[in-house]
Simulated assay, not measured.
Amino acid sequence: MKRRTFLKVVSLPALTATGLIGWATAARSRNRYYEGPVSDHFDGVRFFTPGQPQDKGLFELARWRLGGGRRDWPESFPSPFRDKPPAEVQGLRSALIGHASFLIQVAGLNILTDPVFSERASPVSFAGPQRVNPPGIAFEDLPPIHVVLITHNHYDHLDTETLGMLWQRHRPKIVAPLGNDAVIRAEHPEIPVETRDWGGAVDLGSGVTAHLEPAYHWSARGINDRRMALWCAYVLTTPAGTIYHVGDTGFGDGKIFHAVRERFGRPRLAHLPIGAYEPRWFMQPQHMNPEDAVKVLRIVEAEQALGHHWGTFRLTDEGIEEPPQDLAAALQAAEIPADRFRALRPGEAWSPPV
C-alpha cells in the first residue's frame, strides 16, 4: 500500500492530528472538495459552526507551541488488553481499537469508526504523532467489516492507508460528512463514499441507521483547505438501543448535546472523547476535557459512556495518564458511579450486562 501523498508541502510540527495547520491564508474563491448551496453552516467555500469560535490562527499556535508546559510521554504505553472479536454479535458490543477507532458490533453488523491502523497520525511515514501502543484489535483479527464511519478528515481520524486496506479486504460501505469523499478519492479513486450533511442519515441495514449530527470542531488536511470538508458526530439508531459516537468536539454552549437528547432520547451507549485538551485556552473550542465529557453524559443521560481519544497519539500538553485521572475526579464531583463512564484502553471491550 503506498503511503499518503496528498500533501505536497508540509510543516510537520503543524500537521498534528488536531489540525493545527490552518493559519495559512488560503484562496477563498473555491472549495476543492465540495460544491453546494449556502446554508447556516456553509458560506459557499467553507463550513463553520454557527455561534461558536472557529479554529485558531498562527499567533495562537506559536503562543502554545513556545509556551512550555508540555508533559513527557513514554515511548511505549502498551495496553493490557488484546481483543479478538467474534464474527457477529446480534446484541451490542463495542471495543476500542485505539484513539477514536472503535469496532461496534450490533444487530449482526460490524462497524468501524475512524479506523487508524497506521503507525503515525501524519501525512508522512517518518514524522508526526506516533503510536505508543499497537491497535487493540490486530487488522487480521477484524471480523468482516460492513460499515466504516468517518467523522472528519484530521489525520488521527481519516487514515487513507487503512481505508485502502479495508476496501481491498472487506468492501465496506463508507459514510462521511460532506466533502470527505473527495479527500478519500484523491488517494483511492476506486472507493465509493456516501456523504451527508448534518441532519442527514444513511440506512446501514439490519434496522440500523447512521445519523450525522453537528460537532464543535473543524477540518483540514493541508495548509490551504481549512474547513473545506464537513465534520460530524454520529447517532446510530439500532435494535439494541441508540449509540452516540463523538469523534472530536468542544463542549461550546452545549446546545448540540441537548438537541441529540431531545431528538433521539436517552442513548444506550455514548462514546465520548476525553483527551487532547491542554492547554485549555487553545483546545477548549475543539476538544472536550473529562469535566466537559461528564457534562455531556449528564445532558444526554446515556446509560453507559466509554471514554476514548487518549493514550495512543501524543497530540497536546497533558500527560498520558491525566485523562482517566481527571475523568475519575469529574465523576466523583458529579456523584456519578465510576463504572458508568469508563476510560477504555486499546483492546478493551464492553457489552451490556445480561
Score class of each variant (00 low, 15 high):
residue 5 T to G: 14
residue 6 F to D: 13
residue 8 K to N: 13
residue 8 K to I: 00
residue 9 V to E: 15
residue 10 V to Y: 12
residue 15 L to K: 04
residue 15 L to S: 12
residue 19 G to Q: 04
residue 21 I to Q: 13
residue 28 R to K: 15
residue 28 R to M: 12
residue 29 S to W: 14
residue 31 N to W: 07
residue 34 Y to Q: 08
residue 40 D to M: 01
residue 41 H to W: 14
residue 51 G to T: 02
residue 51 G to P: 09
residue 53 P to T: 00
residue 56 K to P: 10
residue 59 F to Q: 12
residue 59 F to I: 14
residue 61 L to D: 13
residue 61 L to T: 06
residue 62 A to Q: 06
residue 64 W to D: 07
residue 65 R to W: 11
residue 67 G to M: 08
residue 70 R to W: 11
residue 73 W to C: 07
residue 75 E to P: 10
residue 79 S to C: 10
residue 79 S to L: 07
residue 80 P to F: 00
residue 82 R to N: 09
residue 89 V to F: 11
residue 90 Q to T: 03
residue 92 L to A: 02
residue 94 S to L: 15
residue 97 I to N: 10
residue 104 I to T: 12
residue 105 Q to F: 03
residue 108 G to M: 03
residue 117 F to P: 09
residue 117 F to K: 00
residue 118 S to E: 04
residue 119 E to K: 13
residue 120 R to K: 08
residue 121 A to M: 09
residue 123 P to Y: 07
residue 125 S to A: 12
residue 128 G to H: 13
residue 130 Q to T: 04
residue 132 V to F: 07
residue 133 N to M: 04
residue 141 D to H: 14
residue 142 L to Q: 04
residue 142 L to E: 05
residue 149 L to M: 07
residue 151 T to P: 12
residue 155 Y to N: 04
residue 156 D to P: 02
residue 157 H to D: 13
residue 159 D to Q: 07
residue 160 T to D: 04
residue 163 L to F: 08
residue 164 G to R: 05
residue 166 L to V: 02
residue 167 W to L: 05
residue 174 I to L: 15
residue 178 L to N: 14
residue 180 N to V: 00
residue 180 N to M: 07
residue 182 A to R: 12
residue 185 R to E: 10
residue 188 H to V: 03
residue 188 H to Y: 07
residue 189 P to T: 01
residue 192 P to V: 01
residue 196 R to H: 11
residue 199 G to Q: 08
residue 202 V to Y: 13
residue 204 L to W: 03
residue 207 G to C: 00
residue 208 V to E: 07
residue 214 P to D: 10
residue 216 Y to H: 12
residue 224 N to K: 09
residue 226 R to M: 04
residue 226 R to K: 03
residue 231 W to I: 02
residue 235 V to K: 10
residue 238 T to W: 08
residue 244 Y to M: 06
residue 249 T to N: 03
residue 249 T to C: 08
residue 254 G to P: 08
residue 254 G to H: 06
residue 256 I to F: 04
residue 258 H to Q: 12
residue 262 E to S: 11
residue 263 R to T: 06
residue 266 R to E: 14
residue 268 R to T: 04
residue 270 A to V: 04
residue 271 H to A: 14
residue 272 L to A: 05
residue 276 A to R: 07
residue 284 Q to D: 14
residue 284 Q to S: 15
residue 287 H to A: 11
residue 289 N to E: 07
residue 289 N to L: 02
residue 292 D to S: 05
residue 294 V to W: 02
residue 301 E to P: 13
residue 311 G to I: 00
residue 312 T to M: 15
residue 313 F to D: 03
residue 315 L to F: 08
residue 316 T to A: 14
residue 321 E to Q: 09
residue 324 P to C: 13
residue 325 Q to H: 09
residue 331 L to G: 10
residue 336 I to D: 10
residue 338 A to V: 01
residue 340 R to L: 06
residue 340 R to H: 11
residue 340 R to W: 12
residue 342 R to A: 08
residue 344 L to M: 14
residue 346 P to H: 09
residue 349 A to Y: 01
residue 351 S to E: 15
